[in-house]
């Protein structure tokens, strides 16, 4: 990989200053960025490590909101959110593998917004709010297509706040090689409505499946979405699955997620 300047700030303010440099990029756990750099497909001039910043690690509930520090690892979320928001903890516990979960962070995952990543489905499906050093961004505004987000280049995800639903479940159908989601569906039932977010499947990246939400809002049960499937016109087609297959899986996994909500 190409070499780079490395900095490990202790505070968000220091990090923000570092991120203002030309070619600077935030380094979370590096579980995607480092392999990409090895392939020489990314060439940041400055890497700003987020791993040692005060206040950016941890899981805490305030009322009905779960707040996760931007540099919190998947493993920590899986452990610490297990009682508070089991659906999200389960999602975190299925990302990558144990070693990846010990390094990969929620901030890194959401900033990258891989179209097959799990956390974007969790965040969008929960209606989370992404908090940066500059502002709060609702999930509906945050995700803007494959690898595209509302973040400015020098913006840092300091935390993510999840409204805790009455119940939620994530269903991931794994792509057999990468173990990312071939299709993943996060369904959450709140007292004011249902949210369904789909990852892995679509050319537009993570998105809400509004038809299913409407059906589930009136009747939160598998039968309400019986026979429904995603829109094959929007779906990814690759060697792991056709667009039609992915569209079908969206329906299957959404039903399973609803069933999984219990």
């Amino acid at each position: 990989m190409y070499n780079f300047e490395f900095t490990k700030p202790k505070t968000v303010e220091e990090a923000a200053t570092a991120m203002a440099a030309e070619g600077a990029q935030a380094l979370g756990g590096g579980q995607t960025l480092i392999p990409t750099m090895k392939q020489r497909l990314a060439s940041p001039e400055v890497l700003v490590s987020m791993t040692d910043i005060e206040g950016m690690v941890g899981v805490a509930a305030h009322g009905n909101t779960l707040t996760i520090g931007g540099a919190t690892t998947h493993a920590q979320v899986a452990a610490d959110a297990a009682d508070l928001f089991p659906g999200l903890a389960a999602l975190a516990s299925g990302i990558g593998d144990p070693a990846v979960r010990n390094r990969g962070t929620i901030g890194g995952s959401l900033a990258n917004n891989d179209p097959a990543a799990c956390y974007p489905a969790g965040a969008l499906g929960s209606g989370a709010t992404v908090t940066t050093n500059k502002r709060d961004i609702t999930a509906d505004d945050y995700f803007q297509g494959m690898f595209e987000t509302a973040l400015d280049e020098d913006e840092i995800i300091t935390s993510v706040s999840f409204p805790i639903p009455e119940k939620a479940n994530y269903q991931k159908f794994e792509q057999p090689a990468s173990r990312f989601a071939l299709v993943g569906v996060f369904a959450a039932k709140f007292n004011d409505g249902v949210r369904v977010a789909v990852t892995g499947a679509s050319n537009v990246g993570v998105h809400r499946w509004t038809e299913a939400e409407t059906a589930l809002n009136s009747n939160f049960s598998e039968s309400a979405i019986d026979g429904m499937s995603g829109n094959a016109n929007d779906m990814i087609a690759d060697l792991h699955g056709s667009a039609k297959y992915r569209a079908h899986l969206v329906g299957v996994l959404t039903r399973r997620a609803v069933a999984g909500c219990g």
């Binding site: 057999p176 090689a177 990468s178 690759d238 792991h240």
Partner: peptide, 11 residues
Amino acid sequence: LLSGSLMDYAM
């Protein structure tokens, strides 16, 4: 080679 890495070649 579409399955040119362990991300696409399923071991």
